[in-house]
Design a protein around this nucleic acid. Structure first.
Lengths: 191, 191
DNA sequence: TAGAGGTTTCAGAAAGTTCTGAAAGTTCGG
DNA sequence: CCGAACTTTCAGAACTTTCTGAAACCTCTA
């Protein structure tokens, strides 16, 4: 039997190590959330650690604590900076750069919605509209053709994308939205 | 000079080919949207094509039109089926299986929100809560320590995750939400 | 119930992504 | 300006994801 039989189970693990382990777990959880959102996992881990620590750390500390190379840290940090999620700080008399977490989470989220999701939906919307018009122009005039039906369904996608766009705009502008229209548009018409 | 100098530019391209090209573009656009959402690109391409066509197609047609192997089609189709995004149909007197697109888009979206995003946030929330409690238990009792500060910031993440969860629940339940609480929670306290 | 027609599975190929570590670049105090 | 301290860049390594194509597996019909 080892000393581990005492209770609580980790009574003999140095508190510093336990703290570091917990911070690491939270950072990993934030990392998986961020990865889910389409960012690099390390980006989330870095922000999570900085956020919890509450003060600015030099890159070398991040490399140690998260077990990543200086290259990975540098790349992730400049991307985080680009998204306004982390700030770079210089301290007089210290040649290193320090990094600190943005704490206004809504600011971060809305920026991503605005710059990334909104752009995405605009692109898609344009494709939909262009294809719809093209298809209508191909349809034999006068009669109701298979092509017209396709164009109509495409029109439904256009409407949906527009509602989605409106939703995003409302979110990033006033953070208050009604999903009703989205639900209505996304349901198939009775006929 | 080629015949392409006549206008409109593709007056001499067979309409069937133009139609197919447009459908392909829309399918690709849906594919990139779906990829953005964390699904496989082909899944979106398949759903897009089936949705526009409006009727059921056999797998072999999908392979032809989207230039994918039977294996890829089979895998993507069962995943789409699992998400309730595509239905499998048998036609008497035909040995092949046909596939048709679900047209209730909200049903699809809310299902993903419920089964995937909600599960994700629950997982993260648990990690946050566990770590917060653990850190509090490590802090020296009585006085205000650095550890307590960390635990407080973690508590903020917990609150935020709870609000996010509530938002998702509201969305999948009644499709009507107020983002106000999210915005409020996500902003840093004045101090 | 044999076997033709269709579907799924899966090992390896291809493509895509992220990381490492060292070299090149930058910055600043002296 | 020099050079130590730090940061960025980038080619290739390592890993992950997705796809192919053929073999195994169904499943109807005759």
């Amino acid at each position: 039997m080892t000393a581990a039989h005492t209770s609580p189970p980790d009574a003999n693990v140095p508190p510093k190590d336990q703290e570091r382990a917990q911070l690491g777990e939270v950072a990993d959880a934030v990392g998986s959330l961020m990865e889910f959102w389409g960012f690099k996992r390390v980006m989330g881990r870095i922000w999570g650690l900085l956020y919890l620590r509450g003060d600015a750390l030099p890159a070398s500390d991040l490399c140690d604590q998260l077990s990543i190379s200086s290259g990975a840290a540098s790349m992730a940090l400049s991307e985080l900076e680009h998204w306004g999620v982390v700030r770079r700080i210089r301290r007089p008399g210290d040649r290193r750069e320090y990094f600190e977490a943005e704490t206004d989470i809504w600011k971060m989220i809305s920026r991503v919605l605005r710059e990334r999701e909104l752009a995405q939906i605009e692109r898609v919307l344009e494709v939909f509209e262009r294809a719809r018009d093209k298809l209508r122009s191909l349809a034999a005039p006068g009669e109701r053709t298979r092509l017209e039906d396709i164009a109509d369904r495409l029109g439904k996608l256009v409407d949906l994308a527009r509602v989605g766009r409106g939703l995003l705009v409302a979110m990033v502008q006033q953070g208050r939205v009604d999903l009703g229209p989205l639900v209505r548009f996304a349901r198939p018409r009775r006929h």
